[in-house]
Design a protein around this nucleic acid. Sequence first.
DNA 1: TGTCTATTTCGTAGTTTTTACTAAATAAAA
DNA 2: TTTTATTTAGTAAAAACTACGAAATAGACA
Lengths: 258, 258
Amino acid sequence: MDTQAEIEDFLLNGHLQYVPHVSIDCAIFGYHGQQLKILLIRNKFIQGWCLPGGYIKRTETLVKAANRIVKERTGIGNLFLQQFKTFGDPNRARINEFDEELWYKATGLRITKTNWLIDQTISVGFYSITDFSKSTPKPDLMSDDCKWFDIDRVPKLEFDHKEMIQEALHTMRVYLYHYPIGYNMLPEKFTLSEIHALYETLLGKKLDVSNFPKKLISLGLLKKLSEKRSIGPHRSPHLYKFDKTAYDKALKEGVVLT
Amino acid sequence: MDTQAEIEDFLLNGHLQYVPHVSIDCAIFGYHGQQLKILLIRNKFIQGWCLPGGYIKRTETLVKAANRIVKERTGIGNLFLQQFKTFGDPNRARINEFDEELWYKATGLRITKTNWLIDQTISVGFYSITDFSKSTPKPDLMSDDCKWFDIDRVPKLEFDHKEMIQEALHTMRVYLYHYPIGYNMLPEKFTLSEIHALYETLLGKKLDVSNFPKKLISLGLLKKLSEKRSIGPHRSPHLYKFDKTAYDKALKEGVVLT
DNA sequence: TGTCTATTTCGTAGTTTTTACTAAATAAAA
DNA sequence: TTTTATTTAGTAAAAACTACGAAATAGACA
């Protein structure tokens, strides 16, 4: 969706390709080193920061649509994605504040209040997690900026997106305590320090440097490899990989990570 | 919505009052004695069992809409209600199988495939819990029966409603392990046996008769009253009530009930 | 070749929580 | 008064968790 013709077609005929009245918003969490970030876009029309979002094609499942949206903003496909809540407060979108002139300035197109985009919308929230250093943030049609913010330095957000982030963070952390995470988020082979740091970053709290890895091992989630990694003037850590069978079982039945 | 005129108005102009393309389906769980049940309705048009559902008024929040739907089917308002998942598979509603003749026979009205009701719909799932003996099940406009089924004797269900029940049950049980439940679901004063039986019924598993109540007490959730209840030729149980402060704190911060 | 340093990782003691079970208490019926 | 069913206190053993000390060790550096 880049050419003027495509944009015009989206505005005029989008309701034939997409399901009207329903959108998806994505809380895309990024970690790297010890920092947790979230990806935001700056909406052209209301001149404020929002979660990346989009509409659902009539042929798509919800998770497929969320995956498409996340890929368009980050360049990364097949991320861990989970639905966390659906938002439908009638006042959430503030469609009464629609500004025809701003829209015209930004797109060069005249649309009216009867356009399918300017109507009450219920939004399904998804969160995803990725290594932000591997992403290439890109604004969408409606936005003029797209970048990562430290999770504790998020600017003022439009609509109900602040609440969305809080809900997403809460759901993600509850999930993290009950299911292993890391497959597709760590390299195939990794050290205990690496998975320890990942969990600390996502949970936003300290985990015992010795007991936490021991717990993962005692649950049978990790398989110790004979290889080591040389990373400095000190004892080299062993490499581990996930025991896929135990990992999948834990995803299905749940575990408790303290 | 009972008169023919009201039904006709709903079919022709419902999209003005309700948000099109979005519905709510409710998994209404009922307990009594030691039995867990679920409320189902029998759809007139496809002649099959479904979860009770409905549309969202443009002025309503999602939870308010769910509350209205639950009250219409059970006669009970202000139930514990929680969103569990939103369903949007493009094939979930099978709108291609729409039968104009069946619809005419049931309602006396001719509607076409272009009617707002016959279009792709994304459904927000809520579950609720109530004492089924206090309910008065009532079918809706689209159904000719509405009754409780034992949770392990659910008939074949239409659409994706079997998956919905499974997801609802799973979410409800996970919730139950992490938050206290029972306020508004037990009388103000109750015995340890009563809350023990409620949890066993909802979780579908045995809980230790001595340790489970002790856990609740050690968490400070219950306040022992001086009154007792006489219920047979044996030691009379003490009555308890919830410590509202501790209960609300547990709802907010979570607890672990094993 | 030895020390030094930073980090990994093993071991374990002390504590808390959970689990399983026993037995005392007791209200009403026989 | 005895019997019976249930509530509920008590506790021993097992398991899990926590905190922390110390051994192992790879590379830097003298």
